[in-house]
Amino acid sequence: MSRLQDTIAGARAEGRSALVAYLPVGYPDVDRSIAAMVAAVEGGADVVEVGVPYSDPGMDGPVIQQAVDPAVRAGVGMRDVLRAVQAVAAAGAVPVVMSYWNPVERYGVDRFAADLAAAGGAGAITPDLIPDEAGPWLAASEAAHLDRVFLVAPSSTDARLAATAAACRGFVYAASTMGVTGTRATVGDAAEKLVARTRAVTDLPVCVGLGVSNGDQAAEVASFADGVIVGSAYVRELLEGRGADGVRRLSEDLAAGVRRPVTVP
């Protein structure tokens, strides 16, 4: 069984894509970051990526860096992350941890898997861990019945797409543009091409991240992807002081977007 796959399939059964919200634990502090995650769920997020703050987030752009940096300095750790996971589950959405690899390795891979499962987490997304290096995580996630999501990119070869998708459980994360996280004016056609190439090698749902910031873009991505992942736009709500209310409103806009997929000419 896979909770992420079931959730996304449930959205598909309603004729829409799933909305996946990313927020980092610990900004502006742990309690308010958890309140923001709950607000994202109340506004319509199906899945929440619970972000583990990391000192060297090489794949993140300035918006997420700006939020994560104070969380790192405040000493936010895996215990806080697990508390956020519990809160998201209690709010009725599916929590999935998003973490660079070193914090997981430092916590202990097996211990992380066991504690994450116990907290009600569905699994983890690991942006700097490729399946080639993931032996201990493949085993631990298997033992704890957790989903594991790896990324594919426009530069991935067909062989790598197939191998990466085969290692995934839950969904495949299509990093739609070559670059770091952040909002973009247009989503571009690279995402659609990548989703099509990924679908050719797997039956798993394919969710698209990197660049989506509003309901219209969400609708555009929903026309070809099973899930729409939004991160920086949520974080910006917090950075610009609109708090949980801003997060809830953004979720409502995005949730409406994934329900009116448009056909891109």
């Binding site: 090489g58 794949m59 690899w101 942006p127 700097d128 861990l129 490729i130 080639d132 290096e133 790896f150 990324l151 594919v152 990119a153 426009p154 530069s155 991935s156 070869t157 790598r160 990466t164 990093a175 070559m178």
Partner: peptide, 20 residues
């Protein structure tokens, strides 16, 4: 062949960089 010195080394990078 995949860049490991004993248990060290390897590649811990986003998939987007693997092709390069």
């Amino acid at each position: 062949a995949t860049g490991h010195f004993g248990v060290f080394g390897g590649r811990f990078v986003p998939e987007a960089l693997i092709a390069a």
